[in-house]
């Protein structure tokens, strides 16, 4: 990798109200707005950063969490390089739902090798005093579900937010380096071609 900037797409998934938008805004604009609206539809922000000598543009996608919007949310999973599974430590249900979010992502993002795909787990709102999910439980879940890195974050206090996103970048770069030896980057084009040709010839 030379001085070239690579574009990485990461997506924040998790129940409504766990703080996905707040995490994104804290990381990209370093602001926290208690009056933030709940997300309707899909939004994304870009952030340039350097990780271990790699220049990266991180494209962070944020989605509406309600089940009703699933079919209009899931197409945007495509092409993600990393998935940030998010729950809120003061909401045990959001923790319990993480498995579903992971499944939904793997299915709709069309992940070829789920066990190798980089996930990072974020337990947000650690600033609140009444926790419903302990750090141990969260770590255990991460361990049992593919050894995902776990970060306890607070978008409000700016705790661990950058660390979590940077970890996501590292995980992606690590997987890319692994696969680069095996597959030439042109695979993407080859994948798309058969479909285009059939549409021309049929």
């Amino acid at each position: 990798m030379s001085g070239k900037t690579s574009l990485l797409k990461v997506i924040l998934l998790g129940d409504g109200g766990v703080g996905k938008s707040s995490l994104m805004n804290r990381y990209v604009t370093n602001k926290f707005d208690t009056h933030l609206f709940h997300t309707i539809g899909v939004e994304f922000l870009n952030k340039d950063l350097e990780v271990d000598g790699h220049m990266v543009t991180l494209q962070i996608w944020d989605t509406a969490g309600q089940e009703r919007f699933r079919s209009l949310r899931t197409p945007f999973y495509r092409g993600s390089d990393c998935c940030l599974l998010t729950f809120s430590v003061d909401d045990s249900q959001s923790f319990l739902n993480m498995g579903n979010w992971k499944k939904e992502f793997i299915y709709y993002a069309d992940v070829k090798e789920p066990e190798k795909f980089p996930f990072v787990v974020l337990g947000n709102k650690v600033d609140v005093t009444e926790r419903q999910v302990s750090a141990e439980d969260a770590r255990q879940w991460c361990q049992e579900n593919g050894n995902h890195p776990y970060y306890e974050t607070s978008a409000k206090d700016d705790t661990n937010v950058a660390a979590a996103f940077e970890e996501a970048v590292r995980r992606v770069l690590a997987t890319e380096e692994r696969t680069e030896h095996l597959i030439h980057t042109d695979t993407v084009n080859l994948q798309r071609r058969p479909r285009s040709t059939t549409s021309c010839c049929s």
């Binding site: 574009l7 197409p75 945007f76 495509r78 092409g79 993600s80 993407v188 084009n189 798309r192």
Partner: peptide, 8 residues
């Protein structure tokens, strides 16, 4: 770079 958008 346009691959994911196209798929989306």
């Amino acid at each position: 770079r346009r691959r994911p958008p196209e798929e989306v």
